[in-house]
Design a protein around this nucleic acid. Structure first.
Ligand code: FES
Ligand code: FES
Lengths: 144, 144
DNA sequence: TTAATAAAAGATAAATTCATCTTTTATTAA
DNA sequence: TTAATAAAAGATGAATTTATCTTTTATTAA
């Protein structure tokens, strides 16, 4: 479904969001530990997300990655997927035709766009605020 | 969503199924032309599908790939995806956790399994018979 | 100012996916 | 039987994704 890059990115951002509640910055070491991902690779991904203003970072001692708590409700999972995997998941043909459109649909088109739309809506409607609630923190896991 | 292998495989099998209506065998050349896919690569994919009894093949002059018309309603897209991409799309965690299960769910689990299940059902309920109907042949495209 | 810390940036490497090319095997018709 | 045809099998190569390592830059506290 998503690339490894996107999977790690989503998990990392959710973890950072959960720390935002306590206004804490977290280092790459802590993050990759918490989500069980390759550290250097995860660092590269967070670099991309920083450039794209999804998260923020500060260098040096006491530095790390963080998200302004006030923005938690503005950032949806769709934004992260967009940055890391582009929009092929939202607009691409399920059978790999160069263009997905109603005029020249592939045999799966009308069934496929429904699922694609549901996925899109789900990602758009799921914000970091929701995922960093106390209940979310208690009930869900970022590694296993 | 699907790998290139799976995309080409699905398109190829649908094309072969459409020819089954007229009891015709089709060569790899014709197939890759019809679905706009790399020929040698598609041949490898069809080899796998033949081994897995999704389609049949005969070597030599007047040979080619074909599907017994009577089996068109037995073969669902899920069978093809299973052979080419395995079942990670049906059972894997959306955020890439090693195991997807209700006991230790990722933050996206309950939203994700809904979409995953819809995709699964859609693929299970879509048979080659449906996709090789006259209407399907008239209305849909396998390349663009 | 200096030493320590941590992310950014850049180079490189491993693994996987995507793709092609060559040789072999099976089948057919002449 | 022979030549032609077409898929199977195997080897190899290119591209992309995944991952690591090294150097640089920014920040902090002593
Ligand atoms: S054309 Fe294939 S999904 Fe739209
Ligand atoms: S645990 Fe992530 S989707 Fe089920």
């Amino acid at each position: 479904m998503f690339s490894k890059t996107c999977e790690y990115g989503l998990r990392a951002v959710i973890f950072i969001a959960q720390q935002a509640k306590t206004n804490e910055k977290v280092g790459i070491n802590t993050i990759s530990e918490a989500i069980d991902s390759p550290q250097a690779f995860t660092a590269k991904i967070l670099q991309q997300l920083t450039k794209n203003k999804i998260i923020e970072s500060i260098k040096g001692p006491y530095g790390g990655f963080f998200i302004d708590e006030k923005r938690l409700n503005k950032i949806a999972l769709s934004n992260i997927v967009q940055v890391l995997d582009g929009d092929s998941i939202y607009t691409g043909c399920g059978l790999g035709l160069h263009q997905c459109n109603d005029k020249k649909p592939c045999p799966l088109h009308f069934k496929f766009i429904e699922i694609r739309e549901n996925l899109k809506k789900m990602l758009e409607n799921t914000t970091l605020l929701e995922l960093s609630s106390d209940k979310a923190l208690a009930d869900y896991y970022l590694k296993n």
